[in-house]
Design a protein around this nucleic acid. Structure first.
Lengths: 162, 162
DNA sequence: CCAATATCGTAAGTATGCTGACTTTTTTTG
DNA sequence: CAAAAAAAGTCAGCATACTTACGATATTGG
């Protein structure tokens, strides 16, 4: 019974896909006790850095389609991790904001992620660098997205009275 | 409009998830003209290396659940890229085999993947090494899977030629 | 001013993955 | 041998993501 599957010869696409899926599974396992999923954590984390923001903006920052973000937000809202309210200035818009419970859950999630990663026998910094290059390059080709730091200007000032 | 989103501070889980998703999107774009998806290519590629094999085995090798593999195979079968037949020896089993059209499509898919990857400004070998470590480690934790080379013994006798 | 146009969000349908429950068939065991 | 356990696949339901299409609400331009 030979030891290893022939991972050496896997195409790189299969390697990347499999790595991401296994990592997401492990991540979701540890998140389950907090009541979150990986998609939710990412949305909350962006929200914590931007303040209240529209769904469309949030989707562009996370680089998913607006519809996908809508579903993720539906679940986060059902768990009271976020709130939505119509903008008085533009009634097409829903401003999404983090609740206290959401901020709490997010912080626990990020903490547990770091713990999990620190146990992996890889050079995290080098690995992150390669991923960053890959994301930047692939994102560039699919058309640039919103800026995570600035894109909030237009909406964030309007509604910070919760 | 400042240049880059704050990718430096992304949690590693978000980096890996996003990289994989963007890569899969790009991959699927190039696969669309061949009539395949990334999941289909992976299944076909394994099938080409093992010869006829059961769905359960295939799922273990690819490291997805048997149900997931079943769906992928449904689509591949609908496009005549694979064939299924009941084993006469064990009627629970469906032996999955590559059709000529499937082998053809797979070869074109692998070729186009290599071309796409060669254009990326990263050190593919180093990157692959980190992914391999990650896959092996995460796979080990979730319980070892089938061996891609050997697990075929019992079923492959019908169509083995590599 | 009102009709095009653009923007924000939602809905429907599909693909990929997961879990849990089920049927059919084989194997094990009392 | 019959009952129980195990194994292979499928079905149903959910989560994440994509595409295409649509409704509601601005904005713009004739």
């Amino acid at each position: 019974m030979i030891g290893m599957p022939d991972i050496e010869r896997w195409p790189t696409g299969r390697l990347l896909s499999t790595a991401a899926r296994l990592a997401e599974n492990a991540w979701d396992d540890s998140l389950r006790s907090i009541g979150l999923t990986h998609a939710g954590v990412i949305a909350l984390e962006v929200l914590a850095n931007t303040g209240p923001i529209t769904q469309t903006m949030l989707a562009q920052i996370v680089r998913v389609q607006a519809q996908t973000m809508g579903q993720t937000l539906n679940r986060l809202e059902a768990h009271h991790h976020i709130g939505r309210r119509r903008s008085p200035e533009d009634r097409r818009v829903q401003l999404v904001s983090l609740t206290d419970a959401g901020r709490d859950a997010m912080e626990r999630a990020l903490k547990s992620e770091q713990q999990a990663l620190s146990k992996l026998p890889i050079d995290i910094d080098a690995f992150r660098n390669e991923l960053k290059v890959l994301v930047r390059e692939l994102a560039r080709r699919q058309g640039p997205a919103a800026n995570e730091n600035l894109s909030v200007d237009r909406y964030a000032s309007a509604g910070r009275e919760d």
